[in-house]
Write a protein that binds this DNA or RNA. Structure first.
Lengths: 181, 181
DNA sequence: AGCGGCCTGCGACACTTTGTCACATTCTCA
DNA sequence: TGAGAATGTGACAAAGTGTCGCAGGCCGCT
């Protein structure tokens, strides 16, 4: 077991290379040894090689389901702490993720600190360490808007439809400054 | 144990008497012996008296939390199959419910058949359909609110402070039902 | 019991943000 | 090049938000 080593090991699986790189960096800065993969096979292999203590798994990995990976990893190591992290959250998948052994389920965007906090929470732990930096609603909204806008190649009308928001409103929100906090 | 009796026993707890009556009737028609309560104390008492095999619990029972009941009932009988049923569904509460031992989490409206089906399923299923579109802004906000509220153990004032939002506003938002999508 | 502190639900009201409709411009690409 | 989609804005009603205030409830302290 490498849990006796200096740094805690963590497996990160997300099909977006950029997201992986950024988050991995943030986690390394917080003293984790991070291994990243962008598909199920890669994730399983890394898990076999390094037997990590923690894992962060995207729900949607290409055309594969992160739930499969949760199941597979749990079968390999029942002590593994996993959190699902996704931009396509749903109650149904959240329920299954927890049933399959994930310790938590978060929606993007989430800060590295939030993720670590989620990993730390034990199952049914009554004494939660402490809360941390709670993203303000405005900020969260801004991030989401930008992400969806990006996914729609900057098409405001399409983004507004996807967001279930009136185009006029989206335009107005976008015109405002990038909120700080 | 009365599990050897003819009909399977079920505890139904919801603060809406009408809803209780209607659902109880539907369940009885499907051959369940149903006991109903409209608050936590009543639910615990009935559970103690009849030691039911199944339970259907609302998330919001008056000013009380159905999660408390889930916790209490699980402590009384670890074999009890419980489903949460709520019109104020959120990922945060769903995760919590499953961790506390609920077998499933459904959103109102749900048919009697759906509920029974949920009670029957207890293992995680990685084949669950993965999400389609990103969440709407409204939905994202609702989820975020619920998450922060949960992190603050249901303390509305603390959550409002953490969110940088006025308490009055948070109260108003929480009273509304989450939007579908 | 009495007190202070903190939380909660809710009414009221001025102020802001959205939802909509409308219309005159660009794009976009078959 | 032309139809369909996208965009930037103005205007106005509807809905949401920031604030204050107040009464009641729930501790913990003295």
């Amino acid at each position: 077991m490498n849990s006796t080593h200096d740094k805690p090991t963590l497996l990160l699986v997300d099909d977006d290379p950029t997201f992986c790189r950024v988050l991995a960096q943030a986690l390394e800065k917080r003293d984790f040894e991070v291994y990243t993969a962008t598909d199920l096979a890669g994730g399983l292999e890394l898990a076999g090689d390094h037997n990590p203590e923690y894992a962060i798994i995207d729900l949607r990995i290409g055309h594969e389901s992160g739930l499969e990976l949760v199941k597979g990893l749990k079968a390999m190591n029942t002590d593994l702490r996993m959190v699902m992290l996704t931009g396509y959250a749903s109650i149904a998948t959240a329920v299954e993720a927890i049933k399959l052994g994930a310790t938590h389920y978060l929606t993007k965007p989430a800060s590295a600190d939030e993720i670590i906090h989620a990993l730390a929470r034990h199952t049914g732990d009554p004494a939660v360490p402490v809360a941390e930096n709670p993203l303000s609603v405005k900020r969260l909204e801004w991030e989401h808007l930008q992400k969806v806008l990006m996914e729609n190649n900057g098409n405001i009308s399409a983004a507004a439809r996807a967001l279930g928001m009136h185009r006029r409103t989206l335009q107005r929100k976008l015109q405002k400054r990038p909120t700080r906090t």
